[in-house]
């Protein structure tokens, strides 16, 4: 298969397959989780379940000062690469074109050099995350092969996107094909790995806030 044929495949059927798996995966995971149901609480409520849940979805993004002190590296590196992923995925002009092409929605892009810098910073943050994962006793204990795989599929689009933009090492079609392929890999595995937290985090945080809020504590 020539590079250009590979590119055409990843832009066409490949992207289609990845989209199908992503959409199907996310939806079945949501049903799988929510249909398990949860018993309604019979204890007399001291606070609202729904509102507290919604509040925690937002407030859990801000760590407490004490928690920040104790987990600062995890929090800073984590924030940086999540922010970086957001910027590179959603504020880079060619990506906005893709989203517009698929959904019809569009918004202004950041200047390309800014996205370029953010991508580099994100890659560095992800490398820090990996080193931390190996150096920290607790993280080493927790780490599974699934964590390393998830790390790889997360950093891969950033790295391939960076080298595709700067056109390093391969032909134009190959660079773009490899980049899109790495994104498709991310799309395919997202619903079935810990990367599912991209959408289950809203449920988890809501439940946490709801459970706590019912007892009158803002979690």
């Amino acid at each position: 298969m020539s590079e250009i044929a590979l590119l055409e495949w990843v832009r066409g059927p490949g992207f289609q397959i990845a989209t199908i798996i992503l959409v199907v995966g996310v939806i079945i995971r949501i049903f799988e989780i929510l249909m398990l149901g949860r018993k309604s609480n019979l204890a007399e409520a001291k606070g609202s379940e729904f509102a507290s849940g919604m509040r925690t979805i937002v407030t859990r993004s801000v760590p407490t000062a004490e928690s920040f002190k104790r987990s600062s590296l995890t929090i800073v590196a984590g924030y940086v690469f999540h922010f970086g992923l957001f910027v590179t995925i959603f504020l880079y002009a060619p990506h906005i074109l893709l989203i517009k092409g698929v959904t019809g929605l569009a918004w202004p892009a950041l200047p390309t050099p800014v996205v370029d810098i953010v991508a580099v910073v994100s890659i560095i943050a992800l490398l820090v995350v990996l080193v931390h994962r190996f150096n920290n006793k607790v993280l080493r204990y927790l780490t599974t092969s699934g964590d390393l795989f998830a790390w790889f599929v997360t950093i891969a689009p950033l790295v391939t996107g960076y080298i595709a933009f700067h056109r390093i090492g391969m032909s134009g079609p190959a660079l773009l094909a490899v980049h899109i392929l790495s994104v498709e890999l991310l799309m395919v595995v997202l619903p079935f790995t810990k990367l599912a937290h991209a959408f289950t985090i809203f449920m988890a945080r809501w439940y946490n806030g709801a459970i706590s809020g019912y007892r009158g504590v803002q979690s």
């Binding site: 607790v138 599912a196 289950t200 449920m203 439940y207």
Partner: peptide, 27 residues
């Protein structure tokens, strides 16, 4: 014991280790 909240929790864990920093049995 598994209900929708537990399933959402396990689905979301990213093994970040921050819970360890909050637990006196770990710290």
């Amino acid at each position: 014991q598994v209900d929708s909240s537990v399933a959402a929790f396990f689905s979301s864990c990213v093994h970040c280790g921050m819970c360890a920093d909050a637990c006196l049995f770990q710290t």
